[in-house]
Design a binder for these strands. Structure first.
Lengths: 253, 253
DNA sequence: CGATATTTGTCCGTATGTATA
DNA sequence: GTATACATACGGACAAATATC
């Protein structure tokens, strides 16, 4: 009963040269979902309730919801209700995790984009993970992973430096870590392990992921090794908690 | 300077029949860490400052900190300070995930505790996950997983009902799902897959995990199957994001 | 398991404003 | 100006799926 005022009940037909009611309501609902007013997985008010709330007929609300459904923002379930879609993407987390492959499997287009690059000295923990001497020189990349123009993850990746000197340029060109490794003679690589936790993003990560700082992120630390078992990458990735679900398959072995 | 009142400065020796100063301070600090007063990675006040704050000798504080360090809650670094460990527990997530085994591996004591139980009808999604007809009767358990008196996870678990009719009683007795399965003729079981995401807890989950509602949780959905591949459990677990890190090892296969 | 309430899906009809021929 | 086609919006009725007790 709060937002009724935006829709004057006196004029029941679409405004003259302006957009239609159902379009306006659809965008309002989409924005509310984006702001977290309706959290992922949560049920929207019933069509009847929304109709009353916006002061329009139930059919008008149905038109709006159908639009949101076709956009993939909500899932309509007969007899149950209309729910905010939990996750846009279901990413596989396994021995051979590849960003492009993951997206292709989900039927999405996207790639990696280098946001920043520089050379750094390894901290104690980083050096240990990469099995290098402390304070070794490393290539540091901040990389954005997108799918369908939506940011999915941002990651900070460290590579041993004499070996992968030209890596940044290749990643920028191809948008692929796999391709960059291949250009440096690493035809194949595997993920040794992944450490996953949930935390709140800092302002920078939240801004890059285009999500509210009050929404959580999945942090995944991982080490990739070449076929000889030599660590070649130590990465920390932050995934948009609302847009990503990580699936671990245990069917191997 | 807020909690000084609980420690009367006039009485400097250990209270008669009550717990010792260092134990009391240790639990207070642990609770403060749990409530997020001291965030993961943050440096605690110096031993000198804590001693002054609690009105005790620095050695008493050292005793408390040593205890917390042995419990894995803090990391003491000479010349630098005492830091809240980012994660108290590193849990393995694999084909054979067992709560007790996980805790034992981390050198912790703990178990499972049935908070609530009832029989429910399967929703469409649950029935699909368990490969059962819709609206099948299921056993529903809400289970708390603790380690060292600290809540680590709370889970909602669904079991097919004619088969596991007596499961609740055995779990209550033994504090172990594995034992309860064994009592029902399931000597071994494996996890088929896990779907992981980050989200904000509702008031109920936050209360059970004794964490602020503004701290994120890791949600893990999983399906366990018996040796014949028949689903026997569909579980959704919420882990305290600040106290748990999930490690996925990809070294199999 | 069954009865009942809730919620979405589909159909009917009516009216009005907009664009086009 | 008139006729036609189309999009939008309202009101009602019932069916189908789901939730609740």
């Amino acid at each position: 009963m709060t937002a009724t005022t935006t829709f004057p009940n006196s004029l029941q037909t679409a405004p003259a040269g302006r957009e239609s009611f159902w379009t306006r309501i659809a965008t309002e609902l989409a924005e509310a979902i984006g702001r977290g007013v309706y959290a992922p997985g949560q049920r929207l008010p019933s069509e009847h309730a929304l109709a009353e709330q916006y002061g329009v007929n139930r059919h008008t609300i149905r038109r709006s919801l159908a639009s949101l459904c076709s956009q993939g923002l909500v899932r309509i379930s007969q007899g149950s209700g209309t729910y905010v879609e939990d996750f846009a993407v279901d990413l596989a987390l396994g021995k051979r995790t590849r960003h492009h492959q993951n997206l292709a499997q989900a039927g999405l287009r996207g790639g990696l984009q280098v946001l920043a690059a520089r050379t750094v000295r390894a901290t104690a923990a980083q050096a240990r993970a990469l099995q290098l001497p402390a304070r070794s020189t490393l290539l540091w990349l901040r990389v954005l992973g997108e799918a369908e123009q939506q940011p999915l993850q941002v990651s900070e990746r460290l590579f041993p430096l004499p070996r992968f000197a030209n890596l940044e340029a290749v990643v920028r060109e191809t948008g692929s870590i796999t391709a960059a490794f291949a250009a440096h003679g690493v035809a194949d690589y595997t993920r040794r392990d992944s450490r996953i936790t949930a935390l709140m993003p800092d302002a920078e990560v939240a801004a890059i992921l285009k999500q509210a700082q009050s929404r959580p992120v999945l942090q995944v630390e991982s080490v990739n090794v070449d076929p000889q078992g030599v660590p070649i990458e130590y990465a920390t990735a932050w995934f948009a908690g609302d847009r990503v679900k990580l699936t671990v398959s245990h069917d191997e072995h």
